[in-house]
């Protein structure tokens, strides 16, 4: 289980990828991945194609990321969630809160 961060050269596109279980144990790592990205208008994309599991703590962590993105005038996009993870996002109706690209 890992958190990978890629920042594009213009530093306004930050990609965070989760591999394996996305749960409370990633709390610290996940926050560190975005907390220093404060450029105005930063677009955060959260890659979840390799996430095998997600719990409600992870949903909470995504909401914190959304808060951070809104503070810097940016946005969050969830990219290609795996089937199991997408089910959780659907139950929580997160597509009503942010863009999810299936």
């Amino acid at each position: 289980m890992t958190v990978k961060k890629v920042i594009a050269e213009n530093s306004r596109n930050v990609s965070i990828e989760i591999e394996g279980r996305f749960d409370f144990s990633l709390h610290q790592q996940f926050r560190e991945a975005y907390s220093s990205c404060n450029d105005s208008g930063t677009q955060f994309s959260l890659e979840l194609s390799k996430a095998t599991y997600m719990d409600s703590s992870a949903l909470g962590m995504i909401l914190l990321l959304k808060d951070h993105a809104e503070k810097v005038g940016g946005d969050v996009l969830i990219n290609r969630p795996s089937e199991g993870v997408n089910k959780i996002l659907e139950i929580a109706q997160f597509h009503r809160l942010m863009t999810i690209k299936v």
Binding site: L59, G60, D67, I91
Partner: peptide
Amino acid sequence: LPPDLFLG
């Protein structure tokens, strides 16, 4: 509640 706490 803080933003990451909610109730399903």
